[in-house]
Design a protein around this nucleic acid. Structure first.
Lengths: 230, 230
DNA sequence: CTCGAGGCAATTGCATGCACTTTTTGCCTT
DNA sequence: AAGGCAAAAAGTGCATGCAATTGCCTCGAG
């Protein structure tokens, strides 16, 4: 029915659904445990149930939603334990990326990393949390790319997106901004020296701190163990 | 139509399809680049196209198949470059698992690892490639579990399954069996000592060697860069 | 009042059908 | 004979329909 799908970008309808639903999960608009009703989603996006179903299946394969046979899908609920394991994985992955970046980044990649990093110092002084978060994402993405390893990149980005709902508020903590920048600085310095081991350690410490900072919010955000049913 | 699905195990039809098709890819029965026709697969397994489509979507999300919009699905073709990146990732992941295993395995896990490892020595003397491969898989799985990190476990198992088609023939190389056992031995020894760093290095070296051993076959097995169209 | 069985509404799972895109084939032109 | 165009064939993408399963609600027994 009707001509074009208005919202979202292009691609097949299924891809649009994957992005639309995935985005809403990653950005926290859909909360862990929330029920994902096929018919409602289909109506919401003005498509039939089929692409919604396929999207839910793919999101389930990615770990973003949980599917119980004959019982519908919910936004994946991660236990404290599993969350901890993801943060730890993230630390290990970032450490690998930082180490490999130190060893492999081209000089133009190094230059770009340094320039962006120095530029973001201004945002710290201004206390611009939102803008800083954007640069923060950029910074880490540069690290992931700098490793020059497609599969590690995939795993890292995937893990980051699964952690996104639990990491959002980290910069709200007072002083976190400046501290984050200093941690980045340690990573950048090590990379510029080509010191892989130091870069890896710095990155691992950085994530460990983010992990702790986030945990504060997670506890406040997800007090109940099981999913709530409205 | 008709009563029950005879083949494969239980679960929803989609899950059965994911397993069925995924297995055939992982075991090399379906070769990289091979076309996956929805209708043929549906007929082959006596289901409608819908579950096949959903399965292909999920397998695509897992990276085992490649989907081109309106142009069908093929078994994922990995470039030499991407394959190398997966082997490198595997080495890093195994290193993490071995390191964490050294630090975290319970005493019963350590015992089981050692016992199995010693038992497999017999298979090396007998030159029992097939049986040794089974123990080899078991051995590595123990390492992945021993890390006590659910997410790293997921990533590692996933990566291993994606590498499976390219690793099968490794034990055909003369002398590989005994060498593999010795490499395992280095890992086990380090884990027993609780020496995480040494265990990690040993595991990384082990995978690096497997990677090289496999590369030999890959080149012979996959001479063409692009997918072949019959 | 509590507990359990049975039936009903709601929702999921799969099959089928139709529209649209891509690919192939056969014919015409140069 | 080769190239290009067009029409048909094949195959994918999505919508809809129906069967099956689940969860809820009611009703009755203890």
């Amino acid at each position: 029915m009707s001509g074009k799908r208005s919202l979202i970008r292009s691609g097949t309808t299924v891809d649009q659904m994957v992005r639309a639903i995935g985005d809403r999960i990653v950005t926290g608009f859909l909360r862990p445990g929330e029920k994902l009703d096929e018919a409602s989603l289909a109506a919401r996006f003005d498509v039939s149930r089929t692409p919604v179903r396929e999207a839910l299946g793919q999101l389930s394969a990615m770990g973003l939603v949980e599917r119980r046979p004959n019982r519908g899908a919910i936004v994946a609920v991660v236990t404290q334990e599993h969350l901890a394991s993801m943060f730890e994985s993230m630390a290990e992955l970032e450490a690998i990326c930082a180490r490999l970046s130190a060893e492999r980044m081209t000089s133009s990649e190094r230059r770009a990393l340094e320039v962006e990093h120095q530029a973001s110092a201004r945002l710290v002084r201004l206390g611009a949390e939102e803008d800083y978060e954007y640069f923060n994402t950029e910074f880490h993405t540069r690290l992931y790319r700098g490793a020059h390893n497609a599969h590690i990149y995939e795993m890292t980005v995937m893990t980051r997106s699964r952690l996104a709902p639990f990491r959002r508020a980290q910069f709200m903590l007072p002083g976190r901004l400046a501290k984050s920048w200093q941690e980045h600085d340690a990573i950048v310095t090590a990379i510029m020296r080509g010191d892989g081991a130091a870069a890896g350690n710095a990155a691992k410490d950085h994530v460990a701190i983010v992990s702790e900072a986030s945990a504060v919010f997670v506890v406040g955000d997800q007090p109940r163990a099981g999913p709530q049913h409205p």
